[in-house]
């Protein structure tokens, strides 16, 4: 986090020295995006707070923790494939879940399927690529996402 704050600061200064107007426009754009997403972010935080209260930590760890095995991976892969969550919300959510005892393996399977597989956007995808190519891409991406998630799980 500290690294990112420093990185933002340095980028801002470089940007400001090169072009003030552009920097102003970019900052405004970023903050506007933030304000636009703020209600969604707050809602997610509320839901997660309530969820973590209702589901005891032991249960969460049992289902999605380090020793959850295939059950956790299956839940993560299905949820990741069918949901459509912007990454601005995915990562804060993942960080909270990680702190609450969910394993890296489960989280990385969730994140990779979320990024690469899109069941909800499949109808739109077929309009561009046709049915055959779209379904094949999603199946290959699903397998790929599972492999990536599992490999990350081995190392972390």
């Amino acid at each position: 986090m500290k690294f990112l704050l420093v990185f933002t600061l340095v980028s801002f200064i470089i940007s400001f020295l090169s072009d003030r107007n552009k920097t102003f426009a970019g900052t405004k754009k970023g903050l506007k995006m933030f304000l636009g997403l703020l209600p969604t972010i707050l809602n997610v935080l509320i839901l997660v707070s309530v969820f973590l209260y209702l589901v005891p930590k032991e249960t969460l760890i049992k289902i999605l923790g380090h020793n959850s095995g295939w059950l956790g991976i299956t839940i993560a892969a299905i949820l990741g494939s069918i949901s459509l969550i912007p990454m601005f919300i995915t990562y804060p959510l993942a960080a909270i879940l990680l702190k609450s005892g969910v394993s890296y393996r489960v989280l990385s399977v969730f994140i990779t399927t979320l990024l690469m597989v899109g069941i909800i956007t499949l109808p739109l995808e077929t309009k561009y690529f046709g049915i055959r190519a779209s379904i094949l891409r999603n199946i290959l991406s699903f397998i790929g996402a599972l492999i990536i998630g599992l490999v990350i799980g081995i190392f972390l």
């Binding site: 990112l4 801002f12 754009k29 970023g30 506007k32 933030f34 601005f88 804060p92």
Partner: peptide, 23 residues
Amino acid sequence: LFFVEMITFLPFMFILVGLFDVW
């Protein structure tokens, strides 16, 4: 706890994304 963590970091990250977008 969650709120404080998000609110301190997110605005900066969004500024970075915004700057990225213009450049």
